[in-house]
């Protein structure tokens, strides 16, 4: 129980850090983007403006969110080690696992708030341009959030393993980009001479961020089955748990100096 309290304390502090470090300033940019796009594109593309506002809104949630998850996530552990700010904390009744979990939860909460505010911005823009605030948008936003959680887990893992935040950043970017192209990996089976087992292994090993991409389907009003959302949730949870477990293993026995 007290372990949970400590995790919450670390998470709350991580959230406070992101707020104080002005991470959420991207929201201002988002607001400007949404307004400008609805004004400009509304005129430019007859009958397409609703679609374009939704496309832009969802895409920027995904992009901004990924950037935040990636760059803040990578700093979560490695920055604390480099600046030695976690030294006094680990001498308190705070285990390294609790620290990792708290950091993870804190950034996830930041992303949750971020996405929540962006969603409100998107809805306001839709309403202001005389469109419906389609509740089905949630079916695209929820998977985006799941994807961001997985990005945080990847970043946290590399942050715990790598000796510097620069290395951690590079590795995380590589994995996230590869994961976004996982469908290309899957198609390699057909196209190239890479052996099937290798393609399959790669396809399974790389975190599959394509799973969370239902933006287009939602914008066009295609159904997104609940089963799909359930499996995608399971995927995010299982993969994140594996990454956190590995991060804990690596970080738990690491000398901090």
């Amino acid at each position: 129980m007290s372990g949970l309290k400590r995790i919450v304390a670390v998470a709350a502090n991580t959230f406070r850090e992101t707020v104080r470090e002005r991470v959420l300033y991207n929201l201002v940019f988002f607001a400007v983007l949404m307004t400008a796009s609805s004004l400009l594109l509304g005129n430019l593309s007859i009958r397409q403006d609703e679609k374009i506002v939704k496309d832009l809104g969802l895409a920027s949630m995904d992009i901004f969110g990924t950037f935040i998850a990636l760059f803040i996530g990578v700093g979560l552990i490695s920055k604390e080690i480099e600046r030695r700010s976690l030294y006094p904390l680990l001498a308190k009744p705070l285990t390294r696992s609790e620290f990792l979990l708290g950091k993870f939860a804190g950034l996830c909460f930041t992303l949750f708030v971020n996405i929540g505010l962006m969603s409100i911005g998107l809805i306001v823009t839709l309403l202001a341009t005389h469109h419906r605030a389609d509740p089905a948008l949630l079916k695209a936003i929820y998977p985006i959030f799941l994807g961001l959680i997985l990005v945080v887990a990847v970043a946290l893992f590399f942050s715990s393993v790598a000796s510097s935040s620069l290395l951690a950043t590079l590795w995380t970017i590589a994995v996230v980009v590869a994961g976004r192209f996982s469908d290309v990996i899957r198609n390699m089976r057909q196209v190239s001479e890479v052996p099937d087992w290798l393609v399959t292994a790669l396809y399974w090993a790389v975190p599959n961020f394509r799973n969370f991409d239902v933006k287009n389907a939602v914008v066009y009003g295609d159904p997104v089955p609940v089963v799909a959302l359930a499996w995608m949730t399971a995927y995010a949870i299982v993969y994140s748990a594996v990454l956190l477990g590995a991060a804990r293993l690596a970080f738990g026995s690491r000398d901090l100096h």
């Binding site: 470090e21 006094p88 009744p93």
Partner: peptide
Amino acid sequence: PYFYDYLTPREYLDYVGRLFG
């Protein structure tokens, strides 16, 4: 020692106090 830039002493000590329960 290095402490979180963005915290005031009061906030930092409060954070530490929470870790001590």
